[in-house]
Design a protein around this nucleic acid. Structure first.
Lengths: 138, 138
DNA sequence: TTCTTAAATAGGAATGATTCTTATATAAGA
DNA sequence: TCTTATATAAGAATCATTCCTATTTAAGAA
């Protein structure tokens, strides 16, 4: 998953190449803030003043179902999106809406090993995620 | 937090005792399914046919701010609630909306020790949660 | 290149969850 | 029992998201 062009990524997933999809995917890849559909829309409007919010939602759904992006787990009523990249976790600010990626291979391996060995009764694990809440100091 | 009566729990948190609040809290404590406001409403309507959905939301907010309940982390646009109890994690079905509690002290301690020692840069951890997605087999 | 067609888009209406408003009712302390 | 601040019901308003439909367009075929 290294430095693949947006168009290549779309066609690899069997998605028709449109200016809107290119723009939406570019914005998601450029932003590191786990944006809402509205935030994505604001950024898109700079170069695509007429893009429809419906198109954005529909496109996000297409990306979700292809596994290009994922939704961020949240307690809020507004969906936030994240590109899919290597196993990572999320840091949540308890006071603001800020969310940051947190990469920690050792943590991932440790929990993964534990859960694979453990075998939870009546449940077949597919994946897991860790949310760490607290406060940013910068 | 052992076997405390609903009324006691309310007054301990400085909340006025009302039939609606008692009923809402009773339903949340009785249900083990991490219900939405709507599901709570359905259960309440059996004995409180005129309870207002607005009252339910307002009451849930009061319970949230007092720390009696918490929201479940989710990718969906409908909030789900859970009583606050001992450190636990959540099992999510990847296909249905089912969510179950998963208690695992060892897992909690292991991750907690790791994160406390690790000290993430620019971040003061307060708490963490683990979401395990997969499929139930019962 | 031009043609064809299934799929994508814009724009606006519809939906569903949640919040807000306000008049009335009530818990709880005096 | 009285007083008052707060809770409630009911319905309107809001906000995110989905749906609908006429129009446009990407992309493969000729």
């Amino acid at each position: 998953m290294v430095n693949k062009s947006t168009i290549k990524l779309l066609s690899e997933h069997g998605l028709k190449i449109t200016p809107q999809r290119i723009a939406i995917l570019d914005v998601i890849m450029a932003l590191n803030c786990h944006p809402t559909a509205d935030v994505i829309c604001d950024h898109l409007r700079i170069n695509h003043p007429h893009i429809s919010i419906g198109t954005i939602y529909k496109t996000l759904d297409a990306f979700l179902s292809k596994g290009i992006i994922e939704k961020v787990l949240t307690e809020s009523d507004t969906a936030r999106y994240d590109r899919v990249h290597d196993k990572h976790h999320h840091l949540y600010c308890a006071e603001t809406e800020r969310v940051e990626d947190y990469f920690d291979d050792h943590l991932y391996q440790m929990v993964n090993d534990y859960l694979r060995k453990k075998r939870i009764k009546n449940f077949k694990m597919k994946d897991f995620k860790i949310q760490i809440t607290g406060k940013f100091s910068d």
